[in-house]
Design a protein around this nucleic acid. Structure first.
Lengths: 302, 302
DNA sequence: CGCGAGCGGTGCCTAAAAGGCAACGCGATG
DNA sequence: CATCGCGTTGCCTTTTAGGCACCGCTCGCG
């Protein structure tokens, strides 16, 4: 959109940290970019940047304006989608930040099912931990976030929420696999594989362990739940994951057992958007679909 | 703001209903305006107007875009105020749509008190009935609305709400003036002066009368509460108003008596803003002040 | 301590965009 | 059927934006 070009240049300068680099990024000479920004500042009534010897940095006014720009851009995209929808094109784009547990089964199925009915809609899926996901929303980088145990930020609207207990993951021949439900201490007594601290599953486990005056002592700590799932097939250890990210392999090599609720309370898997944001039609509809699918989930994985 | 000029032209054309007239309004030739709009439509990817033989009218896409423009404008004004606030200027502007009852005492006092602390802040007060006030908010024409018995629209956020019973207004020597509280039938039996149907007070009276299978039969029906207040001094008639718009004159010529709550339930005086809207700082602060002042109101006028 | 590299900013000239003017086609109107 | 007002287009002028060369400045490095 042509009329937002100046603001786009401001964003480029803010991102590059230097007018000359921003000019190069935008295929312009530094003088042209500089003049546009200076002219805008004069018109706007305030400087947007701190001019430092080594470049520029946004000041408070600039941050405010840039937030406005991003909001405007996002709203304009929504309008364009609605207009396209008016013309019956059914096009659109959904951007979503989610926790890892959604990657293997839930999201692929949901996206595929949605695209079957709306082949013109494209998706962008980013994997973000619970803190990052909310930052994604705040900066308009993603429309939706589907996160396990998010840190409730002020600018976050919950669209749907379901409980997800923590499950222990282990090889079928693990001694604990005979029990229908596990106590936390059983898992901690033996070797265990845990996700990194930034993940909601780990957060719940740490809190639960602290209540029992225990500590997690993982033999492997990782940012990848996929690694956890596969690792426990190699060494007799217990991993952890929430049921939405688990499905029994056909060969029966892997089993899941819930942790007793009195030890580790169930966490919340939450679908949210930026507070007060009107989503593009495609995102809003997909969010609606996700909300329905989440509620229809079987309470327990098998 | 220079970069929104094209959208401003679109709005002018929409308002004028003709490109030539809009061009005149904006001090431009029709050809220039027409070309800007056509260029924008090409860039945007959709036509914004129906071209009729007698002029132009916005189509659905145009309506959508214009709503975006107004939202952008409003958000930009907020940003500018926040930036001005950053510089410690304490400037700003509050636009407010309100019912007539607020005009004689409450609003002048509140505005004056606020301006005493913030002399840089200016005000725009529009008088609107309950339906119009919400349209004001929806179109971003006003930041706030303070209305008696608004028609609850979907896009309306309530900031504060207080109960206001309906009072009868009459000359001090009116026969009914001797009673501390009046029944509705007493008022309807004698000559009475009533506000027009679009006002909340009249709405409450009509509903109440219908329950008692009575009808209002005003000798004078008017859109002006000021006229009502003054008229009852000339003829032995009863008028109606809510206490926030009433104050006993020093000469004691006018008296107010509440209508029995079992006859006419109290209505709500509601301070609201457009749903999901971040208000400019000045408006937000003034709204906060209004909310406090409303809660501190004496329950009954004397 | 000097010197070059990189920065934001400015004057000058050219290129591009926007505006004004006149005219065209077209439907509505009297 | 002539006329009026509408949106629109071609042509030319005016305004605006961009490229280039260069200035003054700070900072790191030899």
């Amino acid at each position: 959109m042509r009329h937002l070009y100046t603001l786009q240049l401001v964003e480029a300068a803010a991102r590059a940290g230097s007018m000359r680099r921003a000019a190069e990024d935008m295929s312009l000479t530094a003088s042209a970019l500089n003049r546009r920004i200076r002219r805008f500042e004069a018109d706007f009534g305030a400087e947007l940047f701190e001019r430092l010897p080594g470049g520029v940095r946004l000041n408070a006014a600039g941050e405010l304006l840039l937030a406005h720009y991003r909001a405007t851009l996002s709203d304009l995209a929504r309008v364009r989608e609605q207009v396209a929808d008016l013309a019956g094109e059914r096009r659109g784009h959904v951007s979503l930040a989610c926790s890892q547990a959604l990657l293997p089964y839930f999201l692929p199925e949901q996206i595929a099912a949605y695209r079957a009915g709306h082949p013109g809609v494209t998706f962008a899926v980013k994997v973000r931990d619970r803190a990052e996901a909310e930052a994604e929303l705040a900066s308009y980088a993603s429309d939706l976030a589907l996160v396990f145990e998010p840190i409730y930020l002020v600018d976050f609207d919950v669209i749907a929420s379901i409980a997800q207990p923590v499950y222990a993951v282990m090889a079928a021949d693990h001694p604990l696999a005979t029990r229908p439900e596990l106590r936390l201490r059983d898992c901690l007594d033996g070797p265990h594989v845990a996700p990194a601290a930034k993940y909601g599953v780990r957060h719940l486990l740490d809190q639960a362990a602290r209540r029992g005056t225990r500590r997690l002592a993982p033999i492997v700590e990782t940012e990848s739940f996929e690694l956890i799932r596969h690792y426990v097939l190699h060494e007799r250890a217990v991993g952890f994951q929430i049921p939405i990210g688990l499905r029994a392999p056909p060969d029966g090599s892997l089993v899941f057992r819930p942790l007793a609720a009195q030890d580790v309370p169930a966490g919340s898997l939450i679908l949210g958007r930026r507070r007060n944001r009107t989503l593009p039609v495609a995102s809003a509809r997909f969010a609606q679909r996700l909300a329905v699918a989440l509620k229809a989930l079987p309470a327990v994985a098998t």
